[in-house]
């Protein structure tokens, strides 16, 4: 339903001024090609600055690409960006346009601006607020709500005035588990009943693994992999992640531990190692017995996550994907 071909956008270099260094030219999206199928939850995963939001802005008609094409449900969005608003609903990261409205008015106004008449907008508003458990907050201004509640209210506004494609840019940021569940069950209901397609931007790997049908991994503007979460994880199936947390400092006087140091990613007292299963077993045996054990606070063995996939694929940023 959504075909992206060779999408490229370059931010021009900014010349340095007094006191402010210039920035070089940045390729925010670099020859991106994607196919999103009807009825799936398609994810864009990548650390901050990978180009996810720039890509989404081009898909929603908010930004003109330098080159390439975007076709959604048969409409050329590059040539007719104004049509995007009539095909998709977009939940951006910012809520400033709605902040001073009450939850109820934010949803109703958005519905009316999506072309619903007053009666229909109110009926859909009531249904969506009820579905998401927002009815008790309906009369409160978004500004006075907590971050997660505000996000949920913006999500509600995005759902009023049904669209076949939902583009959600980090929809669950700051939400508690109850609100998250409300979001995903609302998405699932629309998918099952109406075949709604969802394009989800996230940097949360746990969420990506649980809700996505397929995921494109972005790094520095390029799609470095695109598959199901399970399919991607098979690429690093031979590896196990070992996390070691030391009580104080690592017991480098133990030769086996000292030998591991070069291969570990250190962050404070934590060492993270990516090893073959045999090797991992040997490491665990070493640290849980003998001199190293006295210095060990905690350890975990885990099968690879999408984060490991990202790193294995050569993702440039070591820290940037969130695990919640």
């Amino acid at each position: 339903m959504c075909a992206v071909r060779g999408l490229t956008k370059t931010y021009p270099a900014v010349r340095g001024r007094r006191g402010a260094p210039g920035t070089p030219e940045v390729r925010a999206t670099d020859d991106v090609t994607l196919d999103i199928r009807r009825g799936e939850i398609f994810g864009l995963l990548g650390p901050n600055g990978a180009g996810k939001s720039t890509l989404v802005r081009q898909l929603t008609g908010l930004m003109r690409p330098d080159g390439g094409s975007v076709e959604i449900l048969g409409h050329d969005i590059v040539r007719h960006p104004e049509r995007a608003a009539r095909i998709l609903a977009y939940l951006g990261q910012e809520s400033t346009a709605l902040d001073e409205l009450t939850v109820s008015l934010a949803a109703e106004t958005t519905g009316r601006l999506r072309g619903l008449d007053v009666r229909r907008a109110r009926a859909e508003r009531d249904a969506v607020l009820d579905e998401l458990g927002l009815t008790p907050l309906a009369g409160r201004p978004l500004k006075k709500l907590s971050g997660g509640q505000r996000r949920l209210a913006c999500f509600a506004a995005a759902l009023v005035g049904e669209r076949p494609l939902l583009v959600l840019d980090e929809p669950t940021t700051g939400m508690d588990p109850v609100a998250r569940r409300a979001v995903w069950s609302a998405v699932d209901r629309r998918r099952a009943e109406r075949g709604t397609t969802v394009l989800l931007v996230t940097h949360n790997v746990i969420e990506a693994e649980t809700v996505l049908d397929r995921v494109a991994v972005l790094d520095r503007g390029r799609v470095i992999a695109c598959d199901t979460p399970a399919g991607l994880k098979e690429q690093v199936a031979g590896e196990v992640r070992v996390d070691l947390v030391w009580r104080d400092t690592a017991p480098l006087h133990v030769p086996e531990v000292a030998a591991l140091r070069d291969r570990a990613v250190e962050s404070g007292r934590r060492w993270t190692l990516r090893l073959g299963p045999e090797e991992a077993r040997a490491v665990v045996a070493t640290v849980t017995g003998g001199a190293a054990f006295a210095a060990l606070d905690d350890f975990t063995l885990a099968t690879p996550s999408l984060e490991d996939v990202y790193l294995a694929l050569g993702g440039a940023v070591q820290q940037g994907l969130v695990k919640v």
Binding site: E82, A84, A89, Q93, E94, T96, A97, L113
Partner: peptide, 14 residues
Amino acid sequence: LRASGGLDHYATLP
């Protein structure tokens, strides 16, 4: 509104 990206809300509505 323009600086914070709030205009996106209106720009993605028909």
